[in-house]
Amino acid sequence: MRLFTLLAAFAALAASSATLAAGAIDQKPIRAAIGEKLKDPYSAVLSDMVRRTAPNAKGVPTDVVCGLVNAKNSFGGYVGPRPFIYFISQREAHIVDVSAGPNDLDRMIYQNFCGATR
């Protein structure tokens, strides 16, 4: 009985932690920062957002949000999901140009904090 109670408590804790982690990302400042870089900021659809902490170029731990953004171009069509990184303390976003080469600065920043580009 005690094992069942412990398992139930652990499952409840894990479920609440997952919900808290998913809900802990405030999209409003992310949308504002990404919107500054888009032709149609109101069309932005954010997905696959994950909060991470990784060292910056100076070795200082930095909190970021990694994710994907899909938005409309000048012709009114969605361009497809593109990786983005949002720096929480600086309230600054970078959208990766997936057609750019491996030496693209935004691509290198994204790879440093978020892993391989999608």
Rank of each mutant, 00 (worst) to 15 (best):
Q90P: 04
Y86H: 11
I34M: 00
E92P: 00
S16I: 08
T19C: 05
A22I: 01
M49Y: 00
G76V: 09
Q27K: 14
G101Y: 12
M108Y: 07
K72M: 15
D97R: 11
A44H: 10
A100Y: 12
D40G: 00
L20Y: 08
R51Y: 02
R51Q: 14
R2E: 14
F75W: 14
K28A: 03
P29I: 10
L105T: 12
L6E: 13
A100W: 12
V96T: 10
A33L: 04
P29K: 05
S89H: 13
Y78V: 10
F113Q: 05
T5I: 15
V60G: 05
Y110R: 08
A93C: 05
T117L: 09
A116W: 10
T62M: 07
T53S: 09
Q90G: 10
A57F: 09
V96Y: 07
L46C: 04
P41C: 06
A15G: 01
I34Q: 01
E36T: 06
A71G: 08
D97V: 08
S16P: 01
P83F: 09
R82C: 07
N112G: 12
Y110S: 07
L13T: 13
S43T: 13
A33V: 00
A21K: 09
A57L: 09
A9S: 02
K37M: 09
P55T: 03
R2C: 07
G35R: 06
M49W: 03
V96K: 05
M49N: 04
A33C: 01
D48M: 10
V65L: 08
A21P: 00
D40Y: 00
G77V: 04
A33Q: 08
A57C: 03
F113A: 03
A57R: 06
V45F: 08
A9F: 02
V96E: 11
I109W: 00
L3T: 06
G115P: 00
K37S: 03
P81G: 15
Y110G: 01
Q90T: 11
D48K: 13
G67W: 11
T62D: 02
S16Y: 06
G59F: 05
D26P: 01
S47L: 05
V96R: 10
T117R: 08
F10C: 13
V45R: 11
L68E: 14
A44R: 11
P61Q: 13
M1V: 03
P102G: 14
V65K: 03
P41G: 09
Q27N: 08
G67I: 12
T19Q: 10
D63Y: 04
A57G: 10
A14R: 00
N70D: 15
A8P: 02
V69C: 10
D106N: 15
P83I: 02
A8L: 05
P83C: 10
A57K: 02
A8G: 07
T53K: 01
E36Y: 01
Y78H: 07
P83Y: 02
A12Y: 00
L68T: 12
I34D: 01
T117V: 14
L105S: 12
Q27C: 06
T19I: 12
N103L: 14
K28E: 01
K72I: 12
L20K: 04
L13W: 13
F4A: 12
A116C: 03
T19K: 10
A57N: 06
T19H: 08
D104V: 09
A21C: 03
N112R: 15
V69R: 10
